[in-house]
C-alpha cells in the first residue's frame, strides 16, 4: 500500500506533496483544542497499525485503519494520516519519504470516503461501519493501481489490487467490531 521512492513519475509525486500540504491546511484549519488529542491518538494508532502483518497470497498485508480514522475524525483524519505515514517512512522505512504526500493523499481519500459512508444515515450502523472499513482500504488500493498505471507500469498491479480486496474485507471486520466496541464503551467518540 505504501509506495516507495523512485517508482512513480517524479512530477506526480512532487505535485502530490504540494497538494497534501494544502490539504493539511484545509482540513486542520480552525481545529478545536478538544479535537487535538483525538487526532493525535488516532495518528498514533495508525502509525502502529501498519506493523500488524498477516500473510496473504505470497505477499503480506497489514492493517491500515483508515476507515476507522475516517469514522472517528471525519475530515480531520488527513493530518493524522499524514503524520502517521511520515513517521512510518522516517522510522520504519515503510514507504518513501518523497512519496509521503501521494501516500497520504491515497489513504486520506480512503478515510474521507469512509466518513461519507458513515454519515449516510439511511443504512443500519453495522453495515455502515463494515462498509467504511472496506472502503478505507479499497479506495487507496484503487488510487494506487491508477497511479501505477499512469506511470506506465503493466497490469500486474491489478493482481495486487485483487489481494487488497481480502485486506479490505479484514479491515471491514475490524472496523465493524471497533465501532461496536466504541458504541458500548465511549459512544461520544462516534460523530
Amino acid at each position: 500500500m505504501h509506495i516507495s521512492d523512485g517508482i512513480l513519475d517524479t512530477g506526480i509525486v512532487m505535485a502530490a506533496n504540494v497538494v497534501s500540504v494544502g490539504v493539511i491546511y484545509l482540513t486542520g484549519r480552525n481545529v478545536k483544542p478538544e479535537e487535538i488529542p483525538k487526532i493525535g491518538m488516532t495518528g498514533a494508532a495508525l502509525f502502529v497499525a501498519s506493523l500488524i502483518h498477516f500473510p496473504m497470497a505470497g505477499t503480506s498485508l497489514h492493517l491500515g485503519l483508515f476507515g476507522i480514522a475516517g469514522i472517528i475524525l471525519g475530515k480531520r483524519a488527513f493530518p493524522a494520516i499524514f503524520t502517521a505515514i511520515l513517521f512510518q517512512a522516517l522510522i520504519f522505512q515503510h514507504g518513501g519519504l518523497v512519496t509521503v504526500g501521494i501516500n497520504s493523499l491515497n489513504m486520506g481519500a480512503g478515510a474521507y470516503a469512509a466518513w461519507l459512508i458513515w454519515r449516510t444515515e439511511a443504512l443500519p450502523e453495522y453495515l455502515r461501519s463494515a462498509l467504511a472499513g472496506f472502503v478505507g482500504i479499497i479506495i487507496p488500493a484503487l488510487l494506487m493501481s491508477l497511479e501505477f498505471q499512469l506511470s506506465g507500469y503493466g497490469r500486474g498491479i491489478f493482481y495486487l489490487f485483487s489481494i487488497y480486496i481480502f485486506a479490505a474485507l479484514i479491515e471491514g471486520a475490524v472496523s465493524f467490531s471497533a465501532v461496536r466496541f466504541f458504541r458500548k464503551v465511549k459512544p461520544e467518540l462516534l460523530i
Binding site: G40, V48, I91
Partner: peptide, 25 residues
C-alpha cells in the same frame, strides 16, 4: 530494535500533539 523505534515514533507523535494542543489552547 523495532520496539524502541515504535516507542520513539509514538512519543514523537504524542509530543507533537501536545505542542499543538498547548499552543491552540
Amino acid at each position: 530494535p523495532l520496539a524502541y523505534r515504535i516507542i520513539f515514533g509514538l512519543s514523537l507523535i504524542f509530543g507533537i500533539t501536545a505542542i499543538i494542543y498547548a499552543s491552540r489552547v
